[in-house]
Write a protein that binds this DNA or RNA. Structure first.
Lengths: 240, 240
DNA sequence: CGACGGGTTGAGCCAGCTCAATGGGCGTGG
DNA sequence: CCACGCCCATTGAGCTGGCTCAACCCGTCG
């Protein structure tokens, strides 16, 4: 199972996929492409012939405000769909951009649509993925809207750890966290200067450490308690 | 068309429903129930045999923080599903409560599931509703996280007007807005005292007026401009 | 009549902001 | 090999939007 691709690892949490489903998902990709950091995936208005899945790297959904500030509204990690079902909404109400170099897998829209019709467990898993995205947005709304900036950062790191763990991208309490303080600021809606101060505070309290873009959640329990992090909203299975 | 129920009026925006689809949706409700203001719909853990749709009144999704504050993360207006597909996530990560007296329609889960399988346009319309909910969450995240409290309130009122208009619950620029300042505070994550001050300011600027729980967006254009409101994220059709 | 749930207003406070300056790492060009 | 520029992290200083606390008013309801 360790060699399963990230999409399958993730979707396993959404349905009890059978061997045949796994086989189908293994053959679902049409092709792959590499994209550098800071590029927009999926230009607006472009006819969406393919669905995109992140295979490596990190991307985000974002909106740009009239004054030029960037608001990041979702993080897209390995295994995440970028644009499942954009066809239904017709036009994008946000942009999707890479935060690091990324490897993107492409699925032909028709192939996926067929699978959703004929294989109920795959259908269920994709529904699950969509609903979890929504649940994450609700939690972010609470995080951004109600918590102190220290709690916000702590909560973000706890969530990142939990999500990366499900696709096998953590090592114990540490993981690769390539975001600049400016990116973290765009994620949380606080200023980059303040990100710096809060990070120092979390470090000084011995809750985490950061070196070479690798973050170590030294005291995960403490971070979770501080930030009121409870992973139920991610709706992950514990028995995989 | 004026006598169509709110669910149908709303779903028309998600797909070009045919007469037979409309007929099916008209007969979809199993029964109705009335609920007073301030009640929780859908208790946690309860086996979800029915899907709930708001027929009148207003409800919300909310989470309660450890310190007792309430964060409202969605507004549920007439025509909105409360719990389409909760079955897939297994357990609720939030609560659903009424903000006013409500009339709720119940749909048997199996009946709806059957329709989603057999009638593609109904399936598409329900997907559309789910994806719009997600788009609204993204916009709220920007609203709560980035905009000034004056912009936040203005944006909320513009959105409410647009959403209520699609189900025929506005009269020109005015509509019934039964929220207390405390509720508005829970919606935006600001204090009730501050809601008061900002409302006064919006009134003093001649942008809106409020009387007997009815709000009048005197200068809708001005409110939209102030708050950077652009209704594309609601993905409504203009030609209905 | 009193209690209670709103709305309104004043006064002082503080988390997080902006502006500004400094230092380190790194790629580029001379 | 060094000089330069650039991006990012860091730190200081002062400002402010929105907060809390605390009154007070009004209409409604038991």
């Amino acid at each position: 199972m360790a060699d399963e691709n990230y999409l399958i690892r993730k979707l396993r949490h959404g349905a009890n996929l059978e061997a045949e489903d796994i086989g189908r998902l293994e053959r679902i990709f049409d092709r792959f492409k590499s994209v550098g950091a800071g590029c927009d995936l999926i230009a607006e208005g472009q006819p969406p012939s393919h669905v995109h899945v992140i295979m490596s790297g990190t991307a985000c959904r974002y909106k740009v405000l009239p004054d030029g500030r960037r608001a990041i509204v979702s993080l897209l990690l390995p295994g995440d769909f970028c644009d499942l079902h954009v066809a239904i909404l017709g036009h994008m109400d946000h942009s999707i951009g890479t935060l690091t170099d990324c490897e993107i897998a492409l699925i032909e829209r028709d192939v996926l649509a067929d699978m959703l019709i004929h294989y109920p467990l795959i259908n269920r898993a994709c529904w699950w993925a969509t609903l979890v995205d929504e649940a994450v947005l609700r939690e972010w709304l609470v995080n951004i809207g109600r918590r102190s900036s220290e709690q916000q950062l702590a909560h973000l790191f706890c969530e990142l750890h939990a999500r990366l763990e499900t696709v096998g991208l953590t090592e114990g309490q540490s993981f690769f966290m390539p975001f600049t303080q400016t990116t973290l600021a765009d994620l949380l809606g606080i200023s980059a200067v303040h990100v710096q101060r809060v990070m120092s505070s979390l470090r000084d309290k011995g809750l985490l450490s950061l070196q070479d873009r690798r973050i170590n959640l030294i005291d995960f329990r403490g971070l979770a308690e501080l930030s009121d992090f409870d992973p139920v909203y991610l709706h992950l299975k514990t028995d995989i």
